[in-house]
């Protein structure tokens, strides 16, 4: 690759970093209006909903991986397992499923 590649990753680095850094630095020590604070507090749960669905169903071409994986993850999580057990357990279930195929 030529020098353009290095300019490109520097550009990618800058445009990725700036949106991550602006709120954390500019908002330091500033009190936002109460309704804005409330909305920001909602973001984590809304983000998780959007990150999980619908992408979890499309982890593999074969949709059954997504369906079985999602069922395993939600099943384990609702039964009270911690995050690590949910992750490793879901992987184990899909490994078993994929060996059966």
């Amino acid at each position: 690759m030529d020098t353009w590649y290095w300019w490109m990753i520097i550009g990618m680095a800058v445009v990725t970093y700036v949106p991550r850094a602006i709120p954390l630095t500019f908002l330091e020590g500033r009190e936002l209006p109460r309704p804005v604070q409330n909305v920001l507090r909602n973001i984590p749960y809304a983000v998780l909903g959007a990150l999980i669905f619908p992408a979890i169903f499309f982890v593999q071409e074969n949709i059954w991986f997504g369906i079985i994986g999602a069922a395993a993850a939600f099943g384990l999580a609702f039964s009270g397992a911690n995050v690590m057990v949910v992750v490793l357990g879901s992987i184990a279930v899909l490994a078993g499923f994929s060996l059966l195929l």
Binding site: V59, A73, N82, M84, V86, V87, G89, S90
Partner: peptide, 10 residues
């Protein structure tokens, strides 16, 4: 490939 999604669920 399920790992990160399982983490989000967890």
């Amino acid at each position: 490939s399920i790992a990160l999604y399982a983490m989000f669920v967890g």
